[in-house]
Every structure is written in C-alpha cells, then in structure tokens.
Amino acid sequence: MTRPVSALAAVIAAAGLLAAWELAAWLAGIDGFPPASRALAQIPRILTDGEALLDIAASVQRMAVGFVLGVAAAVPIGLTMGRSRHVAAFFNPLLMMIYPVPKAALMPIIMLWLGVGDASKTLVIFLGVTLPVIYHSYQGSRAVEQKMLWSAAAMGMGGLSRLVRIVLPAALPEILVGCRTGLVLALITMVTSEMIARQAGLGNILFNALDMAQYDTVYAMIVIVGVLGFVLDAAFERLRARLVAWAAPSHAIIAGTT
C-alpha cells in the first residue's frame, strides 16, 4: 500500500471511529459515556495546563526508564537463551510463570517491597517490557545460522564476541519487533501502575476525573494516551527502519505511518 493511500485509510478509520462514538453516546444518553465532541473539547484544556503536562511528563519519564532498563536486561538474556540450551532451560519455566500474570496485579506486592514511590511503578513497567523483548531476542538469536558461528569460532572469535558481533546484529530485526511490542506494553503498564498509588503522573488526571465522574476528562485522557502510543510507535518504527533497513519488517503493521 502506498503511503498516501495508507494515510488516507487511517484518517477514514479515525473519522469513522469518532462518528460511531458520537452517535453511540447520543443514543446511550448517559453521563458515563460522553460524546466525542465533548471529550475532545477537553484536550486543549489539559494540554495547556502546566500541571497536567508535568504529570504526563512524570509518567513518560518513568516509562522511559522502565523501557530502557527492561530492554537492557532482556536482550542479553534472550540472546543467551537462543544460543544456550541450558540457559533457555533455566529461564523458560520462569518466563512461562511470569508471562500470564497481569503486571498491574503485582503492584500491591511490589509496593510492599519498594514502597509507593517511582521505583515500584518503574519495576512494573520493567516487567511488562522484558518478556516480549526476551522472547523476540530469543527467537532472533535461535535463527542465526550455526555455520556463521562456526566460521567465527574457527577464526578465533570468543563466545562473547560471537554473541555481540554476530548474533546481536543478525537478531536485531527480531529484537526490534520485541521492543516495539515492549513499548506498547510500557505505555499500558505506565497507566495501570498508577491505579493504586501515585504522587505525580497522568493517573492524577485520569483517575481523579474518574473518581469525580468527570467523564469527558476521562475520555480525553484515554485519547491522549492513545495518541501518545501512536506517536511513540510511529517514531520507533522510523528508528527501526533506519537501524535495520537491510531487513524486511517481519511483522509490518499498517497504521498510516509504516
């Protein structure tokens, strides 16, 4: 699909969604489901409120820290798992256990260990990010041709060097697919990590509005989080395209920006 056509399709989809939302809200006629026009009208107010911007920035900062730490921890684990049956046998059961647990459900327990500050929320984001990145790094690492590694070993390259100089670049397209999934999960866990306790963050706007039944603000914040996710995903996809231009995207998602 060419870029203008896919962009047009995205615009039509967004407009259709908004129209359906507007119509459904008018038909429902309940406070808890305001029409799109009323919710969207709140967005300029939120985005011109300095305090709200600081709250959003605090959340995004935590998300960025959680994401970077998650990727930094997950990639070496995934790559090593892909090249060592023993390491894979060690980590796989742990990952299988942690994978289905909703990360936000861990929040009350994590709060007991790390308190109610940023560290506990960042850990929840970290856990959300690591699993897809580990999985994709593992798959990317496993797919590296054994012959290449034998050749490198024959030329005197050590185990760590092979991992960094051969396995990592070869697995990079798959790793970045994992990072893209991880980025979306970071955004989701960023919001859910603020559900129980918070000091600064977009939860201050979203959940307070929910508590006070200010539903237009609630929906406006949902739209803002959605747009934030879209922008981050589009930016990451551009970065991915630059980093691994030599590899065709293995899981292309048409979203008007790809």
């Binding site: 730490l69 260990w113 560290a119 850990l123 856990l127």
Partner: peptide
C-alpha cells in the same frame, strides 16, 4: 523479582 527491584 525482588533482586531486580532492588537493582531498579
């Protein structure tokens, strides 16, 4: 998880 938490 606890070790990761403390490192974090």
């Amino acid at each position: 998880i606890r070790t990761l938490g403390l490192a974090l």
